[in-house]
Design a protein around this nucleic acid. Sequence first.
RNA 1: GGAGAGAUGGCUGAGUGGUCGAAGGCGCUCGCUUGGAAAGCGAGUGAACGUUUACGCGUUCCGCGGGUUCGAAUCCCGCUCUCUCCGCCA
Length: 423
Amino acid sequence: MLDIKEIRNNFEEVSKRVNSRGEDFKLERVLELDESRREIIAKVEELKHLRNTTSKKVPILKKEGKDIQPIIKEMKSVGEDIKRMDEDLRSIENEIEEILLVTPNIPDLDVPIGDDESGNVEVSKWGNPRDFEYDPKAHWDIGPDLKILDFATASKITGARFTLFRGMGARLVRALAAFMIDIHVEKHGYTEVLPPYIVNSDSMIGTGQLPKFAEDSFKIENQDYYLIPTAEVPVTNIFRDDILAEEELPINYCAYSACFRSEAGAAGRDTRGLIRQHQFDKVEMVNFVKPEYSAKALDQMVDAAKEVLETLELPYRIVEMCTGDLGISASKKYDLEVWMPSYGKYVEISSCSNCRDYQTRRANIRFRREETRDVEFVHTLNGSGVAIGRCIAALLENHQQEDGSVRIPAALQKYMGGLEVIA
RNA sequence: GGAGAGAUGGCUGAGUGGUCGAAGGCGCUCGCUUGGAAAGCGAGUGAACGUUUACGCGUUCCGCGGGUUCGAAUCCCGCUCUCUCCGCCA
């Protein structure tokens, strides 16, 4: 959520930068509403002050035997005025909130301007796509051939966009989760958490999934519960409505979880294989940091994700998202894209975002700065470290061998019980 | 799912209609004291919003949302969460 005071005091700049995302976010209306809101507040608080001071006098006058009927009559009417103005105020504040909850974060000044993904900028590349001396298979063929992925049975059990992992396939999911978490915990100082996979709407609002993107989530019928689209939601909301001590920061959590997405707008896209599923596993990183530290934290988070891919010997590139392709909460975002031979291109496998104070304003996550004793909003970052389903697709395709088997990268072998090849 | 109890400031814990943002205690901060520390003594110690150059002033907040009243932490209604017992269950 944007800071209403920032909108008020710095309207041109805020408006220009938010609208650089390629959409007009109607901040003028917020300005108008804010104006009348403050007008009403001034009036109604004056009346409340009158009521308070008068109410204190009433028992005294009563004791003195004075006639308090005229005062009571007057205060009754004052009370009605207050009630009416409070209602007006509430409706204005609701409208302001309604707008602010769907207004995205302000992009950082150095984010490239662009309307859509075509404006994204490649920052770096690691490794080289393998030059196959034979016709490489896609993972949706490799998996079923090795009997480790079973899409047909999953669609019987549930429907489209689900996978049944079998044998070494199932083992691979478990191995990758453990492998990734170990990297983050042992090398990057993360604390492992395992959150609920179902959250309430306050949590979904806190991280930005609601109210704007309701159709992307699975909602539990007749309850205020949602299946998490990412562990970012429960983990970021751990500190909702808290004031942290400065010395507690930074807090770095990583979490394995299943993720559930309706993929409402993706009908017909990526219909084969593991790339776009309603349920997938992911290891997520979430940072809570002091404002002055969040830019650096984003680089470190990207480094942690890079390490996962490099250790798995998967070629990737890093792309910086342009203003038109940032998520609602992000002020700056890097995607890590892994080389996918079946697609003949790089495919997103991690997304690392600096959300600055956007989520913490929504979720009311603050810290007290020692020096000033002031309360400030924490900055949050989140990033995949990395998506396990897509990682399996990449492993199968990039490390496939001509005989149909798949080589397990050295670093992963101990997590696979010493297995070197899936055959 | 059934029965009961509860929710007050960083913590603990009073408060059943009127000078209550809320006693007391603990904690914390600053000062005094000390060779130093502890103890002791004194002062201070929430957040949001509005207003103000500033000092400050005002409003709101006692789980959440309504209601009664001139006035609600206190009375009434609804909801949420926590705890205990029973049932069920991995």
